[in-house]
Write a protein that binds this DNA or RNA. Structure first.
Lengths: 223, 223
DNA sequence: AATAATTGTTAGATAACTCTAACTTAGGAG
DNA sequence: CTCCTAAGTTAGAGTTATCTAACAATTATT
């Protein structure tokens, strides 16, 4: 099942609709939101939505909100896959800082060659996350995992689950064992102390404790 | 001195004009040649030539042949630089065969980011030649070296100069020393024996000798 | 040198993507 | 429940890159 070769522009619309749709439960988005994201004007979006509807990539009725169809979502996810793999390349191999990679990846994501992406993925060692912690979809368009961040970036009141560590020194791992934190442990962030960046967290049943910024910077979690 | 951001298409025309112009002493080319190369029709080329003339990238008069201006040549060379660096990446790092790299590099060469290319070049170890033996221009647009090939691909009657070896085993290097062939040695190909691919060559003053296919496959030359 | 053949250009049209200005619809405030 | 505002759409036009068909210039041939 070959995708029928979309234009650079169409790809960008699908990607934008995808990310905007992810933000609410009904998985839809509004015309002006898309216009803002793509940096165009609403009429341009209207036109494109008509076109994408004809191609069965979005489901859409005039004056209503847009949703991706299954096919449209598949396309969007594959573009995101390419984008994130290129980000890993730019960061890991070329040494770009994580906040410098986006703009260039935005261009690279439109290069057409399945073979290229498969080989790039292999070359990078089949990474699961990009430099921002966002998960990389698989070649068949599966995107299971949630975004991964460091504990120190979780908002107050939210609960997350430990998926790994950044620092894998013996000292740190021993400390984790001591306070009984491992892969899968659920952590709720009770309070953030702005002064030193330390956190008050709760593990399981009301077991409250305080951890330093250094600690929370090195624990990888999923929300 | 920033180049004023050319379109994907304009870049392709400049590159085409560059390669076609390299093939004769007057460094110019004809409209239909460009049309064939770009896979468009002559009228399209005429239009584009008018546009590129206005931008001072080509010098051109109606019904005459086209030449690149200094600025145009500079742009073309920088695109070729990008193209060849990407080819090295695809071949050396991703393991594409040397005849598979062109198509994808054709897309990658239009990615806009000087920083990207500088870092890519460094990552690749500042290569001097692409997988086809074509020289890679430097960041300031200098393209000194000539194409490099293996001795076995030099045509009968032509003279070339040794620039390196592919095989650097002691045995091979000893053999080279014995027959007094080193960097800079001029070799004229007198005859090619189709049966086993061996060559009759002459070094300096009429010193004729015969070398095997294995030998000539491992000597890198410039014509 | 005159003319035929080749090569190149203009004219007019089309497709993709964009815009501004004017109009329409949907949904919330009174 | 009406009416207004915000959101969305049509209409009409511009840009870039392309085409075919018709015309013009150059070059090659006799």
């Amino acid at each position: 099942m070959k995708a029928p070769q979309l234009s650079y522009t169409e790809e960008n619309y699908l990607k934008a609709i995808y990310s905007l749709s992810e933000r609410n439960e009904s998985f839809d988005t509004a015309t002006t939101e898309i216009a803002d994201r793509i940096k165009t004007k609403p009429p341009t979006v209207s036109d494109m939505l008509r076109k994408l509807t004809e191609k069965k990539l979005v489901s859409y009725e005039k004056y209503k909100r847009v949703q991706l169809t299954k096919a449209g979502r598949q396309v969007a996810i594959l573009i995101i896959r390419k984008h994130r793999l290129w980000e890993v390349f730019l960061h890991d191999k070329l040494g770009f800082a994580w906040d410098e990679v986006h703009e260039v990846a935005e261009q690279l994501e439109h290069i057409q060659s399945e073979e290229l992406i498969l080989r790039l993925e292999k070359f990078l060692g089949f990474p699961k996350y990009d430099p921002h912690g966002d998960p990389i979809p698989s070649a068949n368009g599966e995107l299971s995992q949630a975004k991964r961040t460091i504990l120190s970036e979780v908002e107050e009141g939210k609960t997350c689950q430990v998926v790994g560590v950044k620092d894998s020194s013996t000292l740190f791992l021993q400390y984790l064992q001591q306070i009984n934190v491992g892969i899968g442990t659920r952590i709720k962030v009770i309070d953030k102390i702005p002064f030193d960046g330390s956190l008050k967290i709760s593990l399981r049943k009301n077991e409250e404790l305080s951890v330093s910024k250094k600690f929370s910077d090195n624990v990888l979690v999923t929300c």
